[in-house]
């Protein structure tokens, strides 16, 4: 009896969820190196003409805001997403139902300081996701790992773990992207260009700096670069 009831309830819930997704809008993150789509484990050349293989590419998108033509801000509550190249589903953010038109989106690249400071979080913010420094409390906001013949480290590895939320080492970046035609398409396509890591603001050579594992000056320099990796793909 109990099972039957639970089954029926689940079925009903399932139906309603299904019908909702039909009308839902979304944002999709598409990863590129220049004009080439990123493929993990494939050898590629970056904007500094260094050859590299990307093994891991992950970053937090949080505190999402939809902005309409009048400048009204609709804050999406509790919005934390971990975009991970290795998990296709993670690259699509489903937006709550809304019929409004928006002219821009805004989000934090990283995790706000409140969530860095209030103990262990759950879901995508669970330290189990491997995006957390256990010895120096705080989230890794973005991670890029792989190998490159330019790197002088064992196995020619490079690892960039970028984070830091305290004054003097804050790398939280607010990203604002205008939506072409001021009309949010059903699935907004955001291009994410890895080349920005290496040449967005200043040049980062894997040969010179193959590792960044803590908050500080290098992390701030790299974050100033990657803050420029986002753009909207015209439909």
């Amino acid at each position: 009896m109990k099972h039957l009831l639970q089954y029926l309830i689940l079925l009903l819930l399932g139906f309603s969820a299904f019908s909702e997704t039909q009308a839902q809008q979304s944002i999709s993150f598409q990863h590129f190196v220049g004009s080439q789509p990123l493929v993990l484990e494939d050898s590629i050349k970056n904007s500094n003409a260094e050859i590299l293989v990307v093994r891991r590419f992950k970053y937090y998108v949080s505190n999402l805001v939809l902005i309409d033509a009048q400048g009204n801000r609709q804050i999406i509550p509790d919005s934390y997403y971990l975009i991970n190249e290795a998990e296709p589903n993670s690259k699509k953010i489903i937006l709550p139902n809304s019929n409004k038109n928006y002219s821009a989106i805004e989000f934090l690249l990283g995790v706000d300081s409140a969530r860095n400071c209030s103990g262990i979080q759950t879901g995508v913010l669970d330290p189990m996701q491997g995006m957390f420094w256990t010895w120096n409390t705080g989230y890794v906001f973005a991670k890029l790992e792989g190998s490159s013949p330019s790197s002088s480290l064992p196995a020619h590895a490079f690892t960039y773990h970028i984070g830091g939320f305290r004054t003097g080492e804050n790398v939280l970046k607010t990203i604002r992207l205008a939506i072409p035609g001021s009309s949010l398409p059903k699935d907004l396509q955001v291009k994410v260009d890895l080349n920005a890591w290496f040449s967005g603001n200043s040049s980062l050579l894997i040969a010179e700096r193959p590792v960044c594992h803590s908050p500080g000056n290098l992390a701030m320099k790299i974050a100033a670069n990657y803050a420029q990796m986002f753009s909207i793909i015209q439909p």
Partner: peptide
């Protein structure tokens, strides 16, 4: 917590020895 104060919440402390 820790001699350098690197961990800012008691709940987070166990994660350091577990993963080190």
């Amino acid at each position: 917590f820790m001699a350098d104060g690197g961990i800012t919440h008691l709940d987070l402390q166990p994660l350091a020895p577990i993963t080190a």
